[in-house]
Nucleic acid binder design. Structure first.
Lengths: 255, 255
DNA sequence: CCATGTGAACTCGTTCACAGCG
DNA sequence: CGCTGTGAACGAGTTCACATGG
């Protein structure tokens, strides 16, 4: 990217910032909860609190989608749910394959929030021939040999890699060759993919290490304790502080 | 985190940017691999490629830690491994409790990269009395009633929540009350915690939704195809594109 | 009036490009 | 001469604060 200088040339006019995209699912979840409670409208303040962000950020985020609110009132819950779902592409069905049915793969297969949001487990794939046919979460596991066929037949474009690190790149290559263009990687490896393929990674050990860093700093600060116990507390910090360590985005798990 | 206004007052002189902290584990992993292959030194270029970032970023990141490289040569692998480990607080042992031993909790308990990096599973905790005593990953599951005792006895400061969404906040409150100050949350909920407690979240469905967004855009672009097929490709793009947890968005790379 | 929507200020993060040291 | 280390330019993301419109 970025070649030299003024890139992202086109700026498709619908340029929603990546940071905003990463928060839309959060808003959607909060809105869905409100919807289930039959709440008709929410203010940016309320919704922001439910999503764990501040209201200015939420309003700015929504401003990239359009003007879906009503001044002096707030946002219509149902309408927003629809708009965000559409923006995220959740109004269509996304078949997904999960490769590597160990503890983690099984956990993912059983994950409820899966089907609930436009995602459908098209197949569970494992290299262990002994697993073939055995049902996990009601879906029979298939052998790796079937991978290409399944992807093509079902038009799968999203793949989840939950294999050991050693197998990840190989699985990735096959997924990509077969037509997958988005990959969620749980294996602790950097995947090499061709241009046009999106990879998101989730890595438990990285998250723990980040926590350890902060934890260590807390311990150290305590020692250096500036007489003045930084009361700060300042403003409003009712509860919930940073939550989404927004600093980054990813997540975590294992392989 | 933190911060109401001018906080982080002192800027303890050791202010490592959050974005850098989030990448240190990545460098560490790449370095560990090199170390196992007995590679004595690496250039920023090589290491960057292995970690999936670009070399300028890596050098800048390292500059926050100190001047650990040798001009004209590169970095000493072993030395860097040590420095980063120390910076991340991995030279000490971090006992961790995992609450919620379902598929996911079991997967986490079995995760190898766990013990390998200073983390030790101090206990597995589940609300189901029927699970009590049953060993998972060689560790007997204990009932939720024991939670406070375990945390205090073992001096646990990091907790992992792998419970259903409905139980997460409650578990979180108990963890915090018992002394935990860092939480890794796998439940799809926004956790409210008091100031000073760090929360990082990991959410499968959010990651999938972000992928779906980009996937949808790919499909749309194809249709709108600007005559000019953005050749870009420009410079060097050997393989591997974005990766990156954060914003994602293509980020060159190189090898 | 009230809460949205947004320009403008600001902060954080990334990239450039080159000085400087081994 | 090669590669690190870094100031400075640039760009992304966040927060402020207020004009605007229901």
């Amino acid at each position: 990217m970025a070649t030299g200088r003024t890139h992202r040339p086109a700026t498709r006019s619908r340029g929603i910032p990546e940071a905003t995209v990463a928060r839309l699912p959060l808003y959607l979840r909060a809105l869905t909860a409100l919807s289930e409670r039959s709440v008709p409208t929410v203010s940016s303040e309320e919704l922001a609190a439910a999503a764990g962000v501040n209201s200015a950020k939420l309003r700015k985020d929504f401003s990239y989608l359009g003007s879906y609110g009503t001044r002096g009132v707030g946002y219509d819950v149902e309408y927003l749910v629809y708009q965000i779902s559409r923006e995220l592409g959740l109004t269509q069905d996304w078949p997904v394959v999960i490769v590597g049915i160990g503890n983690l793969g099984a956990a993912l297969a059983n994950y409820g929030g899966f089907a609930s949001r436009g995602f459908r487990v098209a197949a569970l794939i494992d290299a262990d021939a002994g697993m073939a046919g055995k049902p996990v979460a009601g879906i029979p596991v298939q052998h790796t040999d079937e991978l290409e066929k399944i992807i093509q037949d079902d038009g799968v474009s999203i793949g989840v890699i939950a294999t050991p690190a050693g197998a990840a790149q190989q699985v990735c290559d096959r997924l990509v060759a077969a037509g997958v263009t988005s990959i969620l990687n749980f294996a602790p490896t950097v995947l090499n993919v061709p241009e046009g393929v999106d990879v998101r990674k989730v890595d438990l050990s990285i998250e723990l290490q980040i926590l350890a860093f902060h934890e260590q700093r807390k311990a150290g600060e305590e020692a250096a304790a500036d007489t003045v116990v930084p009361p700060v507390a300042a403003r409003k910090q009712p509860h919930s502080i940073d939550q989404g360590p927004d600093g980054d985005v990813p997540a975590v798990m294992q392989a």
